[in-house]
């Protein structure tokens, strides 16, 4: 399989703080990759670095062979929207939601390409099929939803456009075990073409479902953990 994302020697951090240390990572097209590690060991920073949300980074990030990384010291998030348009779908940690929009409008926000905007009706229907609890809440304000419902909206927003690479950060964070199980199941059953990286603290939720699981420790990759080490 061709290599979709190729990260070489990526370092990133916030202000003077360096969180990621020379990370190498390769993701092949169509792969499901799990990223495990404790709190504060750089999972979220890696996700943010891939979308240029950290305040600086160095090293090389190649998406489909085209360089999207680079040394920058200013303007976190300035190129994020452009990267999203190039085919990275993001469901960030803590659900970057729009509290004053209804669920439908919120999902429409995710349809940023022309085709997606034209066919947004069908796409929203498809999201509702994936997350049935959202259907009755179609016109409710997102700010009034529960944590699990927000997570579904956030992931649904990401799924409005076919991205080549999906980044899902901590899908189970702050959710009741039952709900997080449901969200994860829906996430695994998604009929998506692109590759997906899921950062997760709870290893049990990833077990047996990923193509690969990679551990992160203190801002460095700890190689392929594989399924054996997690049993």
């Amino acid at each position: 399989m061709p290599e979709l994302l190729e990260v070489q020697q990526l370092s990133a951090g916030y202000g003077p703080l360096r969180v990621l240390h020379e990370v190498d990572l390769t993701v092949r097209a169509g792969e499901r990759l799990g990223l495990v590690g404790l709190n504060g060991h750089g999972k979220t920073t890696l996700m943010r670095a891939l979308t240029h949300m950290t305040s600086w980074q160095q090293g090389s990030i190649k998406l489909d062979g085209a360089e999207i990384g680079g040394t920058r010291s200013l303007g976190a998030g300035r190129r994020t929207s452009g990267l999203v348009r190039r085919g990275i779908g993001v469901a960030p940690q803590g659900d970057a939601i729009f509290p004053g929009l209804s669920v439908r409008k919120h999902l429409e926000c995710g349809a940023h390409t022309k085709t997606a905007w034209r066919t947004r009706q069908e796409r929203i229907e498809r999201i509702f099929d994936i997350f049935p609890p959202l259907r009755p809440l179609e016109h409710a304000l997102v700010g009034k939803l529960s944590g699990g419902e927000r997570r579904m909206v956030s992931i649904g927003r990401m799924l409005m456009v076919e991205a080549r690479l999906y980044l899902v950060d901590e899908p189970s964070l702050g959710l009741a075990p039952k709900i997080s199980e449901r969200v994860m199941t829906a996430l695994w059953d998604l009929p998506v073409e692109g590759a997906m990286i899921i950062a997760e603290q709870n290893v049990a939720l990833l077990t047996g479902r990923c193509d690969r699981v990679i551990g992160m420790h203190a801002g460095r990759m700890r190689g392929d953990v594989g399924h054996v080490g997690l049993g």
């Binding site: 939601i97 729009f98 926000c109 905007w117």
Partner: peptide, 24 residues
Amino acid sequence: SRKGLEVRAMMQNAEGAAYSGISR
């Protein structure tokens, strides 16, 4: 309108808007 939706999204959460492909 679509642009209006983008504006409203940015009014409510700038980071989320960036993740939705909305350029500031």
